[in-house]
């Protein structure tokens, strides 16, 4: 029996979909059977981030309404045997699926997969309620900004009210040099405020834009620092004890210069 994990944040644009794609791909690269479920009905995006947008025939609404069998809607990834996507519907809205239907869907999926990872839409309305309905564990993504941390706090409260205890936190787009300069909240600052356990920290990395442009998750790029962070998180989810990576390496002027003149 697999595990159902929801990736959520409250605020939009903090990196839920990127996180889902990368952690999911990371887990598949470790040899696990993984399905990624896009619950952002009406604004689907996980398919393009994964580079699977041309293969969609059926979607989550088709499955929950019985228009097709579950297996027919699952899209197999090009790179990993064990990685699958259940896409969101693009032409319907969040009310097309109910929390009860989501619970049933998750129960069916976890019979087939080791990890069912749910990409939650922004907000705290029906889409959020659907996304968390069948989940057993929750991961909250935030960035080191007051607006994102505030929303993360609200989401943690709502998750706990829904019996999803002890959610894990991902701090995305951290800029260690800005923290050092006193111009960005640090990991400890944010953990202090939110009082939750950390799953991982992703340094700001331009390569995320590049990999997303190409539809290839950053975990597959060995040189990508953010990809490294996501690989570590996938291993932590799978139960390994992995220390936080050194965020400052590669971030300074000297290493940038080295990169520029081809030393690295």
């Amino acid at each position: 029996m697999g595990e159902v994990i929801v990736i959520t944040s409250g605020k939009g644009g903090v990196g839920k979909t990127t996180t889902t794609a990368n952690i999911g791909t990371g887990l598949a690269a470790l040899g696990h059977k993984v399905v990624l479920v896009d619950t952002d009905i009406g604004l689907r995006n996980l398919d393009v981030v994964l580079g699977l947008e041309n293969r969609i025939v059926y979607d989550i609404v088709d499955v929950t309404h019985g228009n097709c069998r579950m297996k027919q809607a699952l899209i197999k990834d090009k790179r990993f045997e064990g990685l699958h996507l259940l896409p969101a519907a693009q032409t319907k809205d969040k009310t097309a699926v109910t929390p009860d239907q989501m619970r049933e869907l998750c129960d069916n999926l976890k019979k087939e997969f080791d990890y069912v990872i749910i990409d939650c839409p922004a907000g705290i309305e029906q889409g959020f309620k659907n996304a968390i309905a069948g989940a057993e564990r929750a991961v909250v993504v935030t960035t080191p900004e007051v607006s994102a941390v505030r929303d993360a706090d609200r989401i943690i409260g709502l998750l706990e009210a829904a019996e999803l205890r002890e959610p894990k936190l991902i701090i995305n787009r951290l800029r260690p040099l800005m923290v050092k300069r006193g111009d960005m909240m640090s990991i400890d600052d944010i953990i202090d405020i939110l009082a939750v356990d950390l799953l991982g920290v992703v340094p700001e990395d331009e390569l995320i834009v590049v990999t997303t442009n190409k539809g290839e998750p950053a975990v597959l790029d060995g040189n990508c620092r953010a990809g490294q962070a996501y690989r570590n998180m996938a291993r932590r989810i799978a139960g390994e004890d992995v220390p936080l990576m050194d965020l400052e390496a590669n971030d300074g002027f000297v290493s940038k210069l080295k990169k520029l003149i081809g030393f690295k």
Partner: peptide
Amino acid sequence: GSSRNVAKERLRLVLVHDR
């Protein structure tokens, strides 16, 4: 007076009310 500390303090206050 760093903006990091300003952010922390503002968040602390706003969360007291939110919670």
